[in-house]
Design a binder for these strands. Structure first.
Length: 104
DNA sequence: GGACTGACTCGGT
DNA sequence: AACCGAGCCAGTC
């Protein structure tokens, strides 16, 4: 794994404000990567000390094995998941008034 | 090298 | 909503 890439990804995630979220793909883009999977992989290995819970799937779902913990952590900072799903249009970093720069 | 596996995503059925 | 196939990239066997 390229150290520089890892640091890029970690710094992007570290800069996400509390109460906001990004998708793996968003992080990949901000870090200059083409692969969202790489972001997940990096978090799996070196994500323990960054706010990894602010990163979720593009559709607002979380990875199965993390679901419970991640949603708890998010609730703790003001994000209210609807069932297993987070409202990306509302909480996505950069989407202040329900309008995302690129809300799909 | 090939096949398989993931904290992924998108477009098409 | 659910399932598929294709891209994606690094690691393991």
């Amino acid at each position: 794994m390229d150290e520089q890439t890892v640091e890029q990804v970690r710094s992007v995630i570290a800069s996400i404000p509390p109460g906001r979220v990004l998708s793996y793909g968003d992080v990949a883009e901000l870090a200059g990567l083409r692969s969202a999977r790489l972001v997940g992989r990096i978090l799996a290995e070196d994500g323990a000390d960054v706010p990894w819970h602010r990163v979720l799937r593009a559709d607002g779902n979380t990875a199965e094995h993390l679901r419970r913990r991640q949603l708890d952590l998010l609730r703790a900072e003001g994000v209210a998941p609807r069932g297993d799903r987070v409202d990306m249009r509302r909480y996505r970093w950069g989407a202040e008034s329900g309008r995302a720069p690129e809300s799909r």
